[in-house]
Design a protein around this nucleic acid. Sequence first.
RNA 1: GGAGAGGUGGCAGAGCGGUUGAAUGCACCGGUCUUGAAAACCGGCAAGGGCUAGCGCCCUUCGAGGGUUCGAAUCCCUCCCUCUCCGCCA
Length: 428
Amino acid sequence: MLDPQLLRTDLEHVAGRLAMRGYHLDIENYAALEARRKELQTKTEELQAERNTRSKSIGQAKARGEDIEPLLAEVGRLGDDLKAAKEELEKVREHLDHLALDMPNLPAGQVPEGHDESDNEEVRRWGEPTALAFEPRDHVEIGEMLEGIDFEVAAKLSGSRFAVMAGDVARLHRALAQFMLDMHIREHGYREMYVPYLVLDSAMQGTGQLPKFAEDAFATSDDPTRYLIPTAEVPLTNLVADEIVDADRMPLKFVAHTPCFRREAGAYGKDTRGMIRQHQFDKVELVQIATADTAEDCHEALTGHAEAILQALELPYRVMLLCAGDMGFSARKTYDLEVWLPGQQAYREISSCSNFGDFQARRMKARWRNPDTGKPELVHTINGSGLAVGRTLIAVLENYQQRDGSVIVPEPLRDYMGGRERIPLPGD
RNA sequence: GGAGAGGUGGCAGAGCGGUUGAAUGCACCGGUCUUGAAAACCGGCAAGGGCUAGCGCCCUUCGAGGGUUCGAAUCCCUCCCUCUCCGCCA
């Protein structure tokens, strides 16, 4: 949510920045509603103040043993007027709230203009695209040869966009998640968290998935409705919802390994082959809760933590600064990490690291107490994948594939694979 | 699932329907004292919103939502959550 103060004082500027990311804000409509709100609020508060003073004087008169009948008569229909004013104010408020929840975050100053991923800026590159001395197979072929990934049997169970993994590939998938978690805990100072995979709509609203993107999430049919988390960002970030965090604990750094569930409602026909885009996938998620003046640094650091995994696995990647049009709803600045996939001969997103400023914090009422002022201030939230486990598995399979279809196990994963150095073909 | 207890400020914990936005303690901030620290003492200290150039004034908030009343933290209803005991269970 944007600062309502900013919307009141600098509406045109806000509208301009929102236009950068393709959001049209109807200035006149908003200004009119806001004026109406102000008028009604003033009126309501005046009526309330009058009621309060009169009621108080009734109490005092009664305490002195005076006759309160005439006073009661005076109050008359004050209550009815007040009730009517309140109801009208509530309607306008709801309308404004709805608009506010619908508005995406403002892009940060450094964010390039643009509409889609073609306008993203490459910030840096690590490693060279893997050169294979043979025609590279993609992970679907490799998975088949290893009898390690089965999309058909998954479709039987669950329909499209699911996978069943088996044997060494399943183990490699687990190894990756373990390795990532351990590295973030041991080397990057994150606190490991185990969190619910089903959350209430308040949590989804806190991080910005609701109310606007309900069609992207799986929901339960019980009451209250719960949502399958589309990312651990939701439970991890909402840990501080309605909290006032102690200054000396900042920044909070959380890491969790969870499954993620996405409807992929708008992705018909996109990435239908293989495991790139699934309804269910595992991810190791990093979240930091920071103060306003450290958030930028924390964002850079967190991005580095995600990069460190790719570097340790020696997977070539590049870092992209997303343009305004390609950023997620709640983000003010986002770096995507894109890993090289030999099977596609392309860089593909494997992590997205964003700074949300106070956008999510305002929705969540997440604050910290600034010792300088003694006052609570909104926290800034940052998160990123560190990394998407399924896509990392794909990257390992494709970048470490051998001519015969076997796959070398990257060195840091071998301890997690019982010392194995290679995933052999079945029967080999 | 059955029975009971409870949800109040950063935390703990009081609170007859009417100067209670809320006692008290802790924590925190400032001051006195001290070579320094601690202790002691004095003072301050909720959040959100509106109006104002500012001093400041006003409104709202005691789990959530309704209701009774001139007036609700206090009474009534519904819901949520927590705790204890029993049952069941990974």
